[in-house]
Design a protein around this nucleic acid. Structure first.
Lengths: 348, 348
DNA sequence: CAGCGATTGGCAATCGGTTGTCAAATGCGT
DNA sequence: ACGCATTTGACAACCGATTGCCAATCGCTG
């Protein structure tokens, strides 16, 4: 009598069966119960090694992949992590997304990417929805107020990026600490009248940058005024540039590179030269900052790394077993990268 | 005796209960069976209007959201769509991703974004995994061969972007058709010796662009040679620029803007002026093409729109009910955008 | 008022796993 | 060789929703 042949050409090249294999198929093939199959695959040491190996071989043979939905239902773990960004077209988040994507995939998680469209309502409802369909979330530049964010974090594992709220683990890209550096750079070029071009009013990042800058300015006795707010888009750069010119400053430190690049374009349109007539310092060092015209002096941030760290911190929350210090706050260093958009103060 | 009070302050501001509400909670609150609740919410006309309204009110009150995992398990539909891109850091895909994200969200679907790292193996295994966890996939610039792609498409609803395989619905960004335009533009500037800087060898887009260009060149009696292949990254631009200079051409049509921008940088480093010494035409019109130095002449593509169309085509597959023509091929028009990187041929 | 049909509610099976519980089988020591 | 302890397989409940099927109810008509 012929036993079921294993390792035949057909078996080594399992054709696309109509329906993906389940543990029941494996169980039938091995003559054991489905639960045994489940155990053998998830808790191998609790099953006889010979049975286990038979089951594992059968799983390979049938090209078995666990159904993540079913797994999620019974185990309560979805194997997915939500990543919320305010604006998916902002290049800043590209790098962040890549960082999270890489690290999540390495850990066997799926990334659920959501663009919250700069809206706190979309953000809140997404968070609520994700509560069931994801094991945790990474929230970049949240537009939620502190209470709402803390409340959401209490309901599901969360790591924020660039948002500091008590009790919520966070990755902070420490651009503020580079502000004095940027200011000193401008001072060393002779500038004494500087503007801070601020970002969205609800952006905590923008607020923190302004505070750091104005403190540094006070210490050094330099005049720094604040203009804005401006939306973090290149299109906003036109208005920002006009406002900066009108304010009479000789240099600007800009909330982010997107606005800064927009300013560069506008200043050029208006026949003003950068840096001869106006120096510009951006923030973030996004894609494009190195090849715009002129190349942008900016605060370089390890954005992709920040994404990776955020994932690590989230995974540490999800699997507390991995011994040791669950940091709940991680500060990423930044530094000034001087390129062509800053120069000596106009001699006029 | 007091009935359960509805509409009390507590009810209008449902506090975060430990566990999200299920249909059973609603059923208990309304004194009906869980299945009735299910029907009332998914198939309202099959339930008494009074009961239905009670149930709907209770659902609102309990802040009920259906558990997507459970829904997926029993209905077989996950409400998720996978989006596969070869390289998430390529700005080209940003726009595509934004397009898919917007359209998917509008249709109530969740986007599963995966970076396949330019690897056919990662792509294949992701596709297999997605078979169970997504209702369909959108595959951009697939690295799979035609058979593998067709086989995968046979197993689950799929739409490709920039990849034409028999039987697989596709959105094609018709950059090739703009190639003659680009060439005529260069010819009108006096160029007679042009190079095509090609992309990855496995890229069908690059191959199609080259074919269109060489045909147009032949018709016009212009010399067009091909150099490359180069990886679609700005870093590759240096080698591409050197190769172009060495080949002695006066103008380049480049596989994509990323490489083109890298070439711009390299040429500048080498002291060559664009467009005075060399004209450059890119493809795609990605973020950055308008503000690099000089601004890049390029073939503008409706990338975000392509993403939206891809989603529409996929949804049409998923819900065939919506009457009418299921196009299985959609061609997006492109056009030449002339900026500063092209100019008259050197007078030498 | 009875009988009929149409409507509506509820039970239970099902999706594909996980996991607690129990019984069977094995191994060990004495 | 016996008894106890331990290992290991099988059964069944459960996660949260969907859905086929049957029963109960309703309203209408004759």
């Amino acid at each position: 009598m012929f036993a079921v042949q294993r390792g035949t050409p057909m078996a080594t090249q399992p054709m696309a069966t109509g329906r993906p294999a389940t543990i029941h198929d494996i169980a039938a093939l091995c003559g054991v119960a489905a639960s045994t199959v489940s155990r053998a695959l998830t808790n191998p040491e609790r099953v006889n090694i010979r049975t286990r190996e038979r089951i594992q071989a059968a799983a390979v043979e049938l090209n078995y992949t666990p159904n993540s939905q079913a797994k999620a239902l019974s185990s309560g773990k979805t194997g997915a992590v939500g990543v919320l960004v305010p604006d998916i077209t902002n290049p800043f988040y590209f790098d962040l997304i890549r960082g999270t994507q890489l690290q999540l995939k390495a850990a066997g998680y799926t990334q659920l990417l959501v663009d919250t469209e700069e809206s706190d309502e979309v953000e809140a409802s997404t968070l609520e929805q994700l509560r069931k369909s994801a094991d945790g979330v990474i929230v970049a530049a949240s537009r939620l107020n502190d209470e709402a964010l803390a409340a959401a974090a209490a309901r599901m594992p969360m790591v924020t990026v660039n948002r500091d709220v008590d009790g919520v683990p966070a990755v902070i890209i420490d651009t503020p600490s580079a502000m004095p550096q940027a200011l000193d750079h401008l001072i060393s070029l002779g500038h004494t009248s500087v503007a801070y071009v601020s970002g969205p009013a609800v952006s905590q990042s923008s607020a923190r940058r302004w505070i750091a800058l104005s403190e540094a300015a006070e210490e050094r006795g330099v005049d720094v005024r604040r203009i804005g707010p401006f939306a973090p888009k290149t299109q906003s750069g036109a208005a920002a540039a006009d406002a900066a010119v009108h304010s009479g400053v000789t240099a600007c430190i800009v909330f982010n590179d997107l606005i800064a690049i927009g300013m560069l374009q506008r200043l050029r349109e208006r026949g003003l030269r950068v840096p001869e007539d106006m120096s510009i310092v951006g923030c973030d060092d996004i894609f494009g900052a190195d090849f715009c015209n002129p190349p942008l002096t900016t605060m370089s941030s390890p954005i992709e790394q920040a994404g990776r760290v955020a994932v690590s911190m989230l995974l540490a929350q999800l699997n507390p077993l991995a011994g040791g210090g669950n940091r709940n706050r991680s500060v990423m260093p930044t530094h000034l990268t001087v390129r062509g958009s800053t120069g000596p103060v106009p001699s006029t």
